[in-house]
Nucleic acid binder design. Sequence first.
DNA 1: TATTAGCACTCAATCGATATGAGTGCTAAC
DNA 2: GTTAGCACTCATATCGATTGAGTGCTAATA
Lengths: 341, 341
Amino acid sequence: MLNSRQLKILQLIIDDFIASGAPVGSRTISKKSALGISSATVRNEMADLEELGYLYQPHTSAGRIPSDQGYRIYVDSLSLDKAIGQREKNLIRSLLISGKIRAEEVIENAAHLIAEITGLVVVASYPGFKKHSLSNLKLIKISETKVLLILISDNEVVKNLTLSFSGTTQSILDEISNALLRNLEGSTIEDITVKKISKLKYDLKNYAEVIDYLVPILRDTMKNIDEVEYRVEGFDNILSVPEFSDGTKARRMYQLFENKTIFKDIFDQITAEGIDIRIGEENEVEELRECSLITTTYRYQARDFGKIAVIGPKRMDYRGIISTLEYVSNTLSDIFSGIYL
Amino acid sequence: MLNSRQLKILQLIIDDFIASGAPVGSRTISKKSALGISSATVRNEMADLEELGYLYQPHTSAGRIPSDQGYRIYVDSLSLDKAIGQREKNLIRSLLISGKIRAEEVIENAAHLIAEITGLVVVASYPGFKKHSLSNLKLIKISETKVLLILISDNEVVKNLTLSFSGTTQSILDEISNALLRNLEGSTIEDITVKKISKLKYDLKNYAEVIDYLVPILRDTMKNIDEVEYRVEGFDNILSVPEFSDGTKARRMYQLFENKTIFKDIFDQITAEGIDIRIGEENEVEELRECSLITTTYRYQARDFGKIAVIGPKRMDYRGIISTLEYVSNTLSDIFSGIYL
DNA sequence: TATTAGCACTCAATCGATATGAGTGCTAAC
DNA sequence: GTTAGCACTCATATCGATTGAGTGCTAATA
């Protein structure tokens, strides 16, 4: 479709636009390119590229701006060789392997780091929970009226739930905990049903009354476990991006990031491993139609995938972001596979 | 210092400025006031009020804007009768007593609600931890290499800490947990020292080796417990306030709210119970010099106080905010004193 | 046939001059 | 003490002219 000179020109225009944010004129390209081509020739090519839908003019006498299609060609033709150097890689690696033990903290670190490097907003998902099997469980007395339920999945995710539950002692709770664990260990968390919990009564005949009281409370509480949680880092970066710095837009963005269900939808759509790029209108989510979204997956333990997304204006440094994201997600996969423990 | 007419005029000017955000002229006040006074008279009074430092003009031919001192007089002279009606009170009460069990959730709810009502940013502190005594403790195995330490204070705050700790079983951990609790129960959390933990060795001679291994890990982890944590709600509101909606200012604000140590300082300064109002330059924190900060305390259990602050432009609805804040904090005190359980 | 120089044309952005009007301060009269 | 009246100030809005970056088209050139 595009000959190599057209592609070259398109790339130069987009590079320039990403850097400057202003429509790019033919003279700029004529001077920049090593093609030895006059501005008039560039103009002709530009007119062709516009006809093909890769560029457009905000008004007649202005330069060209890339369309979503233009960005798409540009991104697809990017070579990522040496987009980030060994020094940056070493820095990233050393910052991520910083002795944090909890997976959540490692992920927050990673998201924060990417936000710093890219100057954009980063959303990261924590490892899943409900589809994993229960590996440990404990009931702990908080006060006369409250009990804490700790659930641990086999992918090492910890959940705290508080139950309204009076008139018991820690030693009773310990016995119940042990019995519950014996009965439930290995079931996936979403499979823990009233039926399974109720079996406990046979196991702990002495506490039948307590169990009857506990069962409905447990069931209600388990329903409220969130499947996946998200972390947003670097929101303030977007406030410096001219495209979003006006109050109304910034506010809409903030509300977008507050609404975690949207990110469930976004992440659920992305099934392929590796880098996924959505430019402008390619985003199904209305609110992101003016943005580009670059997502990557990292492997968390054997079967689980976590996701990290960078969100910013379409005018972003795709090369650098893709490389950074790839490198960070690989490092995370390494960390979670236990290589650095 | 001020006669009653001057005070009345000052109040009218500030009311108008709070509503409109634009400098207030003499004609506006002359028409509005029921004083039956001409604009010329108002101008004379305004000139006096300016001389006294309660008003100023952004430029010669503009109306007046209240100074920090002006706001101070205004706020001190506010009557709060019926600032919020019974209907609003009932609504607030019913939304707060919504069956949430965890104190953190109740506080988040409250902060969110205040942010909604006031249209401003709300910062709330969670109950303290370190100065309270330990009431329960449990070590729970997460994986071959990780152990979860749960600490519960007598004011019902729960902390999770993850330790890097291999080669043990849950039943050993249970024994250690029980022994630890026996030794430490009742000590305040900040008083838990290596010495106290080390005593364990006499208690659990069989596990001396495990204890030796555990002690330094425990000590390091305990050091990293945050004393107080904060919740920020309604940041997006500030993006709609003209005074802050430009990108740079909004960003600085965001970073202010991200930096939780600043709120430790701010809250620590406020020692009195009840409502505390800081207007503009009255704030010690540089970043809040263009804002007003209204803080209130609620009683959390017997000895503990939590704090909630509303932050916004000096041009804010003091009457409504103070009343809302007072009502919410009283309701929280009631909830935490157990009245609604 | 592809390239380019040249030129007329477009249009956002900038600038300066002018007008508008909200609001003041002062004075003199009530 | 209050107020009508008036001159004055100054931010803001308006309008026309200018500028300049950039285009599209045409005709000449390689």
